[in-house]
Amino acid sequence: MASKALVGLAVRRMTRRWTGTIVILAGTLGAVAALFDLALWVSIGAAVAAVLGGARALRMELLVPVRIAAVENATGALNGAHGAGSAVHLGRRRWVTAAYVVDPDQQVKIRTSGNIIAGYVVYHDTSSNLAVIIAEQDWAWRASALARAVDRGETIRAMGWVRQGSDEGHLNTLSLAADGTTNDGKIILTGPLLPSGFGGGPAVEPGSGRVVGLIYATVRGEYEHLNQTYVVPLAWLPRDFR
């Protein structure tokens, strides 16, 4: 398992650098070709660099922010059997949350911006701490899932609904740092202590704008950098519910 994890980490890092490497090589090709007055190769090198550089910029400047905004709009407040929490819509009326927030077969109401969506808990697994709610109506916004391991030191955005007094609450986002995994595979994040209401909310990888897991618990440390938040990977969900 350790060797597979190391290979996966190496592949991911190579993939992240691959586009940039090709852009550099294409630019170098164009420069060398220009030196020897090879007009065709200058054009090819410039075209490759422009296309790949533009695609990379488009992804980071347009696609990723759109995905993150979609996750924000796809995250709703949930009043479960055991207090306030959050849930995220993965599509086709499927909302996921932490299992401790709701009870099996419970009817719930999910509040989004100006909307209330009713649904029932159809999957509840205390071993993985995941629950799935099927809503009575669809919701326009949906989050994209990312079924991969998180690198140590990687920034992760935690999202959850927070209430203050009698108001309906608001969506809050906090940045934390990945700090490895527990023995059973939960993702460990360190940073600010998450307030009540974040349970069941999404943990988002900002580089892709996709959800890597759901917030399960947060534990106060002696100092802020020692606070720990535990995230259940979405990969633990049965394939039919992802």
Rank of each mutant, 00 (worst) to 15 (best):
G180S: 04
N172K: 06
G207T: 03
Y230D: 04
R210P: 05
Q164E: 12
D167Q: 14
Q164F: 13
L189P: 05
A203Q: 05
E168K: 12
R210E: 06
D184K: 03
G200N: 05
E168C: 01
G180D: 05
G180C: 09
D167C: 08
Y223M: 13
G185C: 02
A217N: 13
T190W: 03
V219Q: 15
Y223G: 14
V219T: 14
P206W: 03
L194M: 04
G191P: 06
G197N: 01
T218P: 10
Y216Q: 11
N172E: 04
R210N: 13
Y223T: 14
T173L: 06
V212I: 15
T181Q: 15
G185F: 13
L194F: 07
Q164I: 10
P206V: 11
D179H: 02
L171M: 00
P202R: 00
I187P: 09
A217F: 09
P202C: 05
V219A: 14
Y230S: 09
V204D: 11
S196C: 08
L171C: 00
L174Y: 06
L214G: 01
Y223A: 12
E224Q: 15
G209Q: 15
H225A: 14
P195V: 00
S166A: 11
T182D: 09
Q228T: 09
T173R: 11
P202A: 04
P202H: 00
H225N: 13
T182K: 10
T190G: 02
E222W: 08
